[in-house]
């Protein structure tokens, strides 16, 4: 198996994990908030808009994952049709560069989903505190952004 594994395969594996894991995290997070939001809306339909705002928050990790994956595709020439011939070393480097956003994306989206779902509970009681509920959930975003930053810096640091 390893004989046929060239650098480009590793780079694409990195891209797939960045998109995949961060996407899974966001799906779980958004799903969890959706359940909480349904609980509130089933008793109080006026809260749809407010809960929807909170539900959207854990969705960003998936976007960061896609962004990283797209950058890898673009840098390695998958997009544009000019496929680079990467060495194993370059392939591993790209793979590693994708890891921050893949791993942190997965876990932070779930954590953010929990915070946002708790926020849904908060606005069920005090709708006027929507801002605070959003801030609590957005605090988690910091770490997803930091991971995205690391992934991008790493990717642009690799020379092909």
């Amino acid at each position: 198996m390893f004989e046929s594994m060239t650098g480009i395969v590793l780079a694409l594996l990195g891209a797939a994990l960045a998109v995949g894991l961060a996407g899974i995290g966001s799906a779980i997070g958004v799903g969890l908030v959706g359940q909480s939001a349904s609980g509130v809306v089933s008793e109080d339909p006026d809260k749809f808009g407010q809960t929807l705002l909170l539900q959207a928050l854990p969705g960003t990790q998936g976007i960061y994952g896609l962004l990283t994956g797209f950058l890898i595709m673009q840098r390695t020439g998958v997009v544009g049709g000019n496929l680079l011939n990467l060495t194993m070393e370059q392939g591993w480097a790209v793979f590693m560069a994708a890891m921050p956003v893949a791993i942190v994306g997965l876990l932070s989206a779930i954590a953010q989903g929990r915070a946002a779902a708790a926020g849904v509970g908060l606005i069920a009681k005090r709708p006027e505190e929507l801002g605070k509920a959003i801030i609590f959930a957005v605090m988690v975003e910091t770490y997803a952004v930091l991971a995205l930053l690391a992934s991008i810096l790493l990717l642009f640091g690799i020379t092909f």
Binding site: G31, L32, V33, Q35, S36, A37, S38, G39, V40, S42, E43, D44, I110, R114, A117, V120, G121, A124, K125
Partner: peptide
């Protein structure tokens, strides 16, 4: 984590009921 998803709906619904 499985518990989160099990109780998320019910807890949120109870929060609204508590208001009453």
């Amino acid at each position: 984590m499985a518990n989160d998803s099990k109780y998320a709906y019910a807890v949120a619904r109870v929060r609204v009921l508590e208001n009453r």
